[in-house]
Computed example of a mutant assay.
Amino acid sequence: MSVTPLAPVPPHHAAPAFRGRIGRDPRSGHYAVPRRYRLHLTPACPDGLRIAVVHGLLGLDGICPVTVLDPVPDCPDGGHAALRPLYEASAHRYAGPAAAPVLSDDWSGRIVSTHAPDIMRDLARRFSTGGPALYPCDAEAETEAVERLCAEGIDAAAQRAGRADADAAERAAALEELLGTLRALDERLTGHRYVLGDGLTAADVELWVALVRLDTVHRAHLDATAVHRIAGHPALWAHARRLTGHPAFAAHLDLDAIARRHRVRCRGLEAAGAAVQILDWTAYTGR
Score class of each variant (00 low, 15 high):
residue 126 R to Q: 13
residue 151 A to Y: 12
residue 156 A to Y: 12
residue 112 V to E: 02
residue 192 H to T: 12
residue 128 S to T: 14
residue 175 L to H: 13
residue 144 E to S: 03
residue 121 R to A: 14
residue 183 R to Y: 12
residue 123 L to E: 04
residue 186 D to E: 06
residue 189 L to H: 05
residue 206 E to G: 00
residue 122 D to Q: 11
residue 113 S to H: 09
residue 200 L to A: 05
residue 185 L to R: 02
residue 117 P to I: 12
residue 138 D to R: 10
residue 199 G to E: 11
residue 142 E to H: 11
residue 182 L to P: 01
residue 186 D to A: 04
residue 125 R to G: 12
residue 214 L to V: 11
residue 166 A to T: 02
residue 138 D to A: 13
residue 130 G to T: 06
residue 214 L to I: 12
residue 182 L to C: 10
residue 131 G to P: 04
residue 152 E to V: 13
residue 168 A to V: 06
residue 208 W to H: 15
residue 191 G to A: 04
residue 128 S to V: 02
residue 177 E to I: 00
residue 204 D to T: 03
residue 184 A to L: 14
residue 142 E to N: 04
residue 149 L to I: 02
residue 168 A to I: 10
residue 146 V to G: 02
residue 142 E to W: 13
residue 129 T to Q: 14
residue 136 P to C: 11
residue 186 D to M: 01
residue 126 R to I: 10
residue 165 D to E: 14
residue 152 E to F: 05
residue 161 A to S: 11
residue 116 A to S: 15
residue 212 V to E: 00
residue 115 H to K: 05
residue 149 L to F: 06
residue 129 T to D: 07
residue 175 L to I: 03
residue 183 R to V: 10
residue 133 A to H: 10
residue 149 L to M: 13
residue 115 H to Q: 10
residue 134 L to I: 05
residue 165 D to Q: 11
residue 164 A to K: 11
residue 215 D to I: 01
residue 213 R to K: 08
residue 208 W to K: 07
residue 144 E to G: 00
residue 162 G to S: 04
residue 152 E to G: 00
residue 129 T to L: 14
residue 150 C to W: 06
residue 196 L to G: 04
residue 160 R to S: 09
residue 163 R to L: 14
residue 187 E to Y: 01
residue 145 A to W: 13
residue 120 M to G: 01
residue 147 E to M: 04
residue 162 G to M: 08
residue 185 L to Q: 06
residue 116 A to Y: 15
residue 198 D to V: 11
residue 129 T to E: 04
residue 187 E to F: 04
residue 204 D to Q: 07
residue 166 A to N: 08
residue 141 A to L: 11
residue 200 L to G: 02
residue 211 L to A: 12
residue 149 L to G: 05
residue 173 A to L: 05
residue 174 A to Y: 06
residue 191 G to N: 06
residue 199 G to P: 01
residue 117 P to K: 07
residue 146 V to P: 00
residue 177 E to G: 06
residue 167 D to C: 07
